[in-house]
Nucleic acid binder design. Sequence first.
DNA 1: GATGAATGAGAATTCATTCAT
DNA 2: TATGAATGAATTCTCATTCAT
Lengths: 217, 217, 217, 217
Amino acid sequence: MMDDQNHQDGFARRERRVGRRQEEILQAAASVFAAKGYASATTREIAATADIAEGSIYNYFSSKRDILISIISRFPSPVDRLLSGIERVTDREGFVRLIERAVLAPAPEQPCMRTIIQEAWTDDELFRQYQAGHIEELTSRLARVISRGVKAGWLRSMDPDVTASAVIALLMAFMMHPMRAFPAVETPEARTRRVRSAIDILLYGLMGNQSPGQEKE
Amino acid sequence: MMDDQNHQDGFARRERRVGRRQEEILQAAASVFAAKGYASATTREIAATADIAEGSIYNYFSSKRDILISIISRFPSPVDRLLSGIERVTDREGFVRLIERAVLAPAPEQPCMRTIIQEAWTDDELFRQYQAGHIEELTSRLARVISRGVKAGWLRSMDPDVTASAVIALLMAFMMHPMRAFPAVETPEARTRRVRSAIDILLYGLMGNQSPGQEKE
Amino acid sequence: MMDDQNHQDGFARRERRVGRRQEEILQAAASVFAAKGYASATTREIAATADIAEGSIYNYFSSKRDILISIISRFPSPVDRLLSGIERVTDREGFVRLIERAVLAPAPEQPCMRTIIQEAWTDDELFRQYQAGHIEELTSRLARVISRGVKAGWLRSMDPDVTASAVIALLMAFMMHPMRAFPAVETPEARTRRVRSAIDILLYGLMGNQSPGQEKE
Amino acid sequence: MMDDQNHQDGFARRERRVGRRQEEILQAAASVFAAKGYASATTREIAATADIAEGSIYNYFSSKRDILISIISRFPSPVDRLLSGIERVTDREGFVRLIERAVLAPAPEQPCMRTIIQEAWTDDELFRQYQAGHIEELTSRLARVISRGVKAGWLRSMDPDVTASAVIALLMAFMMHPMRAFPAVETPEARTRRVRSAIDILLYGLMGNQSPGQEKE
DNA sequence: GATGAATGAGAATTCATTCAT
DNA sequence: TATGAATGAATTCTCATTCAT
């Protein structure tokens, strides 16, 4: 029984070590992909960043592409950030919070994720595999929320389906790019102000006649 | 003098021929970059597309990167499309038209440009060299327009600087991405509807109390 | 017309140059394959032997395996050497000559081909693609010849099908290996004597009661 | 003394365990070498087949090559199968049995050995080290047998030395290759028929005027 | 100028072998 | 002794760039 315990411990320890190493490689790869883009990133640089030998990468991943896929499917995509909780939105307040949470998410990995998600966004195969389904689901759910909002009067009158897909396009685009335009200059506060302003415009555009975000600042 | 004339003619003719060839290569490269991304595009494929020899490329451009740079600086970026004419905006109507023109621009090269601009957007050096300046200029001009609009009452009350940069971020992002989310499904009409809807949200969000795009459809 | 001629000349010249280079690479590869076996041969060594850069190989062949296949399908296999002319065999004399020609073929490339053919013989895919068909054809043709020989009395009585496949197995095996057993020692004359002796045994075994090769020595 | 006994027992037991492990590894390696060829076989696959860790192999063998050498020198080669008992041949019957036993040997490992022996046959160093000596010995012994047979009249008149080396070449070649030519089609019975037929031809060729194998079927 | 073969630096990946546990 | 992750040299192949024709 003792032996069994020991054996199990050993097994669990190894599992954890493998997991840790994978994590390290993924972190390293993510940062290199983010800096150079997937195609220009080299396994050599990933290995150097992860501080292991080039060949060791292949003890944990079967190919460079496998690393990219692992990153993409491991981290929650912006889409998922929007999806979670969308059902609970029943009023203007909830809607505002949903959008703000999705876009302003303080995810520490966000800057490094942007480029990687772009990759999934650009690569047809990855897009179909990891995004398309989510987005369709998100769109139809959002359309239902909008439909409810219009009926309840806290959204102005619009076609729910078209509006839903337009909003998602806007949000996805915005979540992927907002930082780029002013990279060197701006302080975090300035960034937050700008993002808030954009959200405000979006929400105001959806709700009409009353700025929804402004009052919360 | 006759000789001189001939010589000048010959010179001009050569100039034109060189220009034409460069144009062909740029077109070819643009389409290949768009399809594969800059890093994965090969000079071989560019040459094949331009129907010239691989080596001939180097008679017109000094490197693959030089081609990318030439494309970026030759074609008007979305930023420029917004810039031109921004000064003439003096009322709600003009503003609506400005935004619509920029986003819906029927530029035949647009789909092929998106990827290339993304490249410039992702590559720090290119970004600084070809976008940063334009964007700053655009932002400050737009801020002035917004400021005027708020004073004149055709825009709701907002901080002009923050709003300007937020709008630009939204527009840039949207101009670069809107198609992706629904690639297989949608008809051109559906696409236009969706883009219109997004613009509508944006403008309504800026102007308040009256949908500006809706009535024009 | 002159121009046309020149152009054609240029075209032909290039064709020839390409052909020559391919030939050089094939020769080099053949000798390296022969020395090391396909799997252990490296493109680096092939390139060095052909005195070109490693990368240049890929201007002429799409992969290392493509080189092997080219070699195999370019040179006539032992099977083909047996096939050609088998139909014309109508008597004991012709039969003797057929076998002798096939086995003793003074092909200059033979020593270098043996190992390569072995590769095709060992690799299931290559075998099916380049040998299987030939061998089946050869077997049925040989069976017909044997059948005729038995009827005409210049072969002893045997089952033609079984005998045909046995003879082919013996010949193929022998053509692929005979040298190996005594590589360093023997003179060409000794080798010829030994091969002749083997052929003699085979033919005597087939014909019975009279040594067919002995008298020619 | 008891202790001593125990110690000796322990020692012997360890010896046996080591031997058993080595055997397992050799079996595993043999089957992998046979399937892929030496160069393409990986230690990983050998380890997996032997159901041990990759690293453990190196507790028993110093290198991959060492495994190959161990296999070759451990298992009796076809040559050895011919050698053993060759001295006892004193008449036609014995000769027939000798050849049949060597070629038709029901060794279960034969198919797996063929490829390995081919490796030794192809690799100059291995050939010299493990085959050359055996073959020379075999040749001279066989020559003596033939000489005796010719004198005794149960072999037709031939040069014993040349004939001996020819027979060995034929047999070696045939023992290494006979299966290949008809892999998918034939039943075990068909194969036996074919091999018997080949042996028959050989023996008939050696003895003259009387089929030696035919009557035994 | 035009061509495209030649180049060689590097890319991703494999694998025999080592070594800490 | 057993393990299997770590290593890094070696391998096949790619591709921007050069250069002889």
